[in-house]
């Protein structure tokens, strides 16, 4: 197992290098000259050239790439073209807010989604199922920005119970995590339900029932473990997506997270920030995949890694 993990972690390096090269080429292909953008509309060509030099964009592309890779190896991601602050600082400041928001959203949505999913599967096509799946479909179809605004209007503006924007106290986390988690909870509910419905039709469930086990036992002990594999996969994927920062939710709640940083960076063609963010997102996905694979082994001992 340990050997497997080490092997996977080593395999990470070439992947990141390829991602780095692709991202580097991709951002330089984006239309628009960052020096011109940074200098502003009323700058003359001399000023644009000054800005270009200042940002290090006057060097040839290969030289810029070498500098980029060399910098990354030394844990130096350069400076943001927009704010001129170190990229690592820009990202570091925003990583934790996004991380905690993701964790809280995932926590409630996974619990809630799985409970609804299991209940719906057990009482398939009866009212708990109908109710649960109605909730789930609404959760998927209701756009996050609308949900966020409605929640803010009701709980912050009308009732005055919760703060509108910011991330200072736990009360700031309630509305954004609710908004962000709604779609995930819905997806988890539907996944859990369909996975459970399949499992509940399996022979070993019939056997368990036949040997006289009570229903809660059958569902939790024999059903849950086996149904969990696809659910965990989905969980990993969703976690990865949320860690990228939700642009919509971060905009509505003015969350100081990575999603907004990425949008700002793309708008201003802030190459160093875009590159570092995409590298970070790739790394997150790779690590989450690894964790998911390890979890498979824990959930189902017949899965072995070498």
């Amino acid at each position: 197992m340990v050997q497997y993990i080490v092997k996977r972690l080593l395999g990470l390096l070439p992947t990141l290098l390829i991602v780095g090269l692709l991202v580097f080429l991709f951002v330089h292909l984006l239309p628009g000259d960052p020096a011109r953008l940074a200098a502003g509309p009323d700058a003359n060509p001399e000023t644009v050239e000054l800005v270009r030099k200042d940002l290090g964009l006057d060097r040839p592309l290969p030289a810029q790439f070498v500098r980029f890779v060399n910098g990354v190896l030394h844990w130096d991601f350069g400076r943001s073209l927009r704010t001129k602050r170190p990229v690592s600082e820009e990202i570091g400041e925003r990583f934790m807010p996004t991380f905690w928001l993701t964790v809280w959203s995932m926590a409630w949505s996974v619990v809630f989604g799985m409970v609804i999913g299991v209940l719906s599967a057990v009482w398939r096509n009866r009212w708990p199922d109908r109710l649960g799946m109605t909730l789930a479909v609404s959760g998927i179809s209701f756009p996050a920005f609308a949900l966020g605004m409605v929640l803010m209007q009701v709980f912050s503006v009308q009732l005055g119970w919760l703060p509108t924007v910011g991330n200072d106290t736990w009360r700031h986390y309630l509305l954004p995590s609710l908004t962000l988690g709604a779609a995930v909870a819905a997806i988890m509910a539907r996944f859990t339900r369909s996975s459970f419905v399949d499992i509940l039709g399996e022979d070993y469930i019939r056997t368990a029932r036949a040997k006289g086990l009570d229903e809660p036992h059958v569902v939790v002990k024999h059903g849950m473990r086996n149904a969990l594999i696809p659910v965990v996969t989905m969980m990993g994927l969703q976690f990865g997506f949320l860690l990228g920062g939700s642009i919509v939710v971060e905009k509505v709640f003015n969350w100081p997270g990575l999603g907004r940083l990425l949008v700002d960076a793309v708008d201003m063609r802030d190459y160093p920030v875009i590159q570092a963010l995409v590298l970070l997102f790739s790394l997150e996905f790779i690590l989450i995949n690894l964790i998911v694979d390890v979890l498979y082994g824990l959930i189902n001992p017949t899965i072995r890694y070498r």
Binding site: L30, P31, G32, D33, D267
Partner: peptide, 9 residues
């Protein structure tokens, strides 16, 4: 035009 396109075109 998005900002980058505006600059380019």
């Amino acid at each position: 035009l998005e900002a980058g396109q505006r600059v380019e075109k």
